[in-house]
């Protein structure tokens, strides 16, 4: 197997008495899309927070390209190439869409806050704006946008940092079927076409979308990893079916 680009090993997170993540392992292979699925409360977003450094795990490590980044603060991980979007939109609501993207680019380079090589940033932002179809709303304030567009802005913001690994937290929630389809195409395009485009870790409720785009899928349930493998395997895994339909469902089917 190829050396994973991003790996979380043996991650445990407890909220008081509740074990949100229980010795979870996760690998993201370079150059592909890895899916992370599981019922509500399985710990998917918590794992994202651990990977990006927003939450310190009680136990476990995070490796990027083989080096241990567990002790790095969030912003250092970001500069090393870990970018993410949020399930609950975290837009810079007071800034225009263009400035949302530009500020992201500035945050990702050193000296960006002093306006160093602003031309390069503007070029990158222009590129991302047109790729995501945000040109027509570029000067609208982010806080005024509907959810679907807001998700695009978050994706664009993450792309502006030229990430090596991109963590998407339920990007299709709040989108209708047509929008989801369009998003899928966009995702494949971003990963495939961009020279050195990012690897993606995708948390998603829409199982069909996950099955379509992912090369590898990891399934969490109650904070435990219950399965991991290519989509075909996951589809037929009895433990996964049980987690989604409930044990009762399995026995009925059986």
């Amino acid at each position: 197997m190829v050396e994973p680009l991003l790996a979380a090993t043996d991650v445990t997170v407890r909220f008081g008495g509740l074990v949100a993540l229980d010795h979870v392992d996760l690998e993201v292979a370079p150059g592909g899309i890895t899916g992370l699925i599981g019922p509500n409360g399985a710990g998917k977003t918590t794992l994202f927070n651990v990977i990006t450094g927003l939450r310190q795990p009680n136990q476990g490590r995070v490796l990027l390209d083989g080096s241990d980044i567990s002790r790095w603060p969030t912003q250092r991980r970001a500069r090393a190439g870990v970018a993410r979007t949020f399930q609950r939109l975290e837009l810079f609501v007071g800034l225009s869409v263009r400035d949302n993207l530009l500020s992201a680019w500035e945050a990702s380079v050193s000296g960006g806050v002093f306006g160093r090589s602003g031309a390069e940033g503007r070029a990158r932002v222009g590129e991302v704006l047109s790729r995501l179809g945000l040109v027509s709303v570029a000067d609208r304030r982010a806080g005024e946008l509907p959810t679907g567009l807001g998700r695009m802005v978050e994706l664009g913001r993450a792309l502006c940092t030229r990430p090596r690994v991109l963590l998407l937290d339920e990007p299709s929630s709040g989108l209708d079927a047509a929008e989801t389809a369009r998003f899928r195409d966009l995702l494949l395009e971003v990963v495939g076409q961009d020279a050195g485009g990012p690897s993606v870790l995708l948390v998603e409720h829409d199982v069909r979308l996950v099955m379509e785009v992912c090369d590898q899928i990891t399934v969490l349930d109650f904070g435990k990893r219950i399965a991991s493998g290519p989509p075909e395997e996951i589809r037929d895994d009895p433990a996964v079916i049980a987690a989604y339909l409930g044990d009762q469902g399995v026995t009925d089917v059986a």
């Binding site: 450094g53 969030t74 912003q75 993410r84 975290e90 500020s103 500035e106 002093f114 978050e154 913001r157």
Partner: peptide, 21 residues
């Protein structure tokens, strides 16, 4: 850029950090 940085930190601190600020 300074103004944008301040707005980031004010509006969505978590997002600002995950972008490198």
């Amino acid at each position: 850029p300074v103004g944008r940085r301040l707005q980031m930190v004010r509006d969505a601190p978590d997002a600002a950090a995950t972008l490198g600020a």
